[in-house]
């Protein structure tokens, strides 16, 4: 036995080092790779929860009409019925989801640019879509001097 150990010592020592290395590798691997990794595919499923946890800026149509009944009715009666509130008023989650919405009063939209983005005449726009050359149409007057934006028909 002693003879065997002496003769194969040069094999046993690297084998021990190799096994120890393998052990350290496996320990580090288990420590760093999340348990659920690979549950659905080659990725960490916890990432799904992390991405889901991001906050919302646009509260969504349904939130607005909970309180703003009058505007919702006016809008539903006109051509802008399918334009969401936040499409013009901007992201309002901080207003709609706040404990005290009046503390986060949204600013009024910038009418000079807002209407023009959709309704300025452009050859690429669908032919049936209402478009005007603003300079000729109103002579510089703001759109809301004549049109009521929630129901723009005169």
């Amino acid at each position: 036995m002693r003879q065997f150990l002496r003769d194969s010592g040069h094999l046993i020592r690297p084998a021990v080092i190799l096994l120890a290395g393998l052990g350290i590798f496996l320990a580090v691997r288990t420590a760093f790779i999340p348990k659920a990794f690979g549950e659905y595919g080659h990725y960490d499923p916890a990432a799904l929860e992390r991405i889901r946890a991001r906050s919302v800026s646009y509260a969504g149509q349904d939130q607005c009409v909970l309180c703003h009944d009058e505007q919702a009715k006016a809008r539903a009666a006109g051509k802008h019925a399918h334009v969401a509130c936040e499409a013009c008023h901007g992201p309002q989650a901080s207003h709609a989801l706040a404990d005290d919405p009046s503390a986060h009063k949204p600013p009024l939209p910038d009418v000079a640019n807002l209407c023009r983005r959709c309704h300025e005449k452009d050859a690429a726009k669908p032919k049936g879509f209402p478009q005007v050359v603003t300079a000729e149409h109103s002579g510089g007057a703001l759109c809301n001097t004549c049109h009521q934006p929630h129901n723009p028909h005169l």
């Binding site: 991405i51 889901r52 800026s57 646009y58 399918h82 969401a84």
Partner: peptide
Amino acid sequence: CTLCYHRITKGLTTACCENCPTG
């Protein structure tokens, strides 16, 4: 684009679809 994963998993639509005036 995450297809607004944080919105669609809460029952909302994406920010781009929500704000498209012509659908």
